[in-house]
């Protein structure tokens, strides 16, 4: 049987302030743009599985027609991640162009600041280890308290 994802990784982006490649194993492809998507980023719509970006574009076009945008309910005590329309609503509201790392030239209908990485993205750098793995708990705690003190002093 043919693997629809061609053994690929998810091409969706995650983040808000910074957008990064999702990097999870893809389980499907978007029926509109053929981009591989992981289980978390697959949205099943009337056209079949779509990626969040295509889903949002669809929703936005529909809401432009009936002008009835749904606001995310932040009051709900839920673990559900923010829906993609919210991410774009934040960008629109505060006129923000997120910093994108990883594969570039990905989004077509929005301005992103893509900082081309000349070499491969550092996977074992501080980014990958931030807050993970064994660490000197007390040392980290002290350093962070110092940072907070410096940060709050006027």
């Amino acid at each position: 049987m043919r693997d629809p994802t061609q053994g690929g990784i998810c091409h969706s982006k995650k983040g808000l302030l910074f957008l990064e490649d999702c990097g999870e194993l893809a389980v499907d492809t978007c029926s509109l743009c053929a981009r591989p998507v992981c289980a978390a980023h697959r949205v099943v719509g009337p056209e079949g599985p779509v990626c969040p970006e295509c889903y949002y574009r669809d929703q936005r076009d529909a809401s432009d027609e009936d002008d009835d945008t749904e606001e995310d309910d932040l009051d709900a005590d839920t673990d559900a991640p923010l829906s993609y329309p919210d991410r774009d609503q934040y960008y629109d509201k505060y006129d923000y162009q997120p910093v994108v790392t990883g594969s570039s030239h990905y989004f077509s209908d929005r301005d992103y600041r893509t900082f081309e990485e000349t070499t491969e993205a550092p996977t074992k750098g501080p980014a990958a280890t931030a807050g993970e793995g064994p660490e000197d708990e007390e040392g980290a705690d002290r350093e962070e308290r110092d940072d907070l003190d410096h940060f709050l002093e006027s």
Partner: peptide, 19 residues
Amino acid sequence: LLKFLRIMAEDIPAKGRIS
């Protein structure tokens, strides 16, 4: 705070420790 954490969950790694 609680609502802000939900929004920023997009950028904070699941295993990262928050002081």
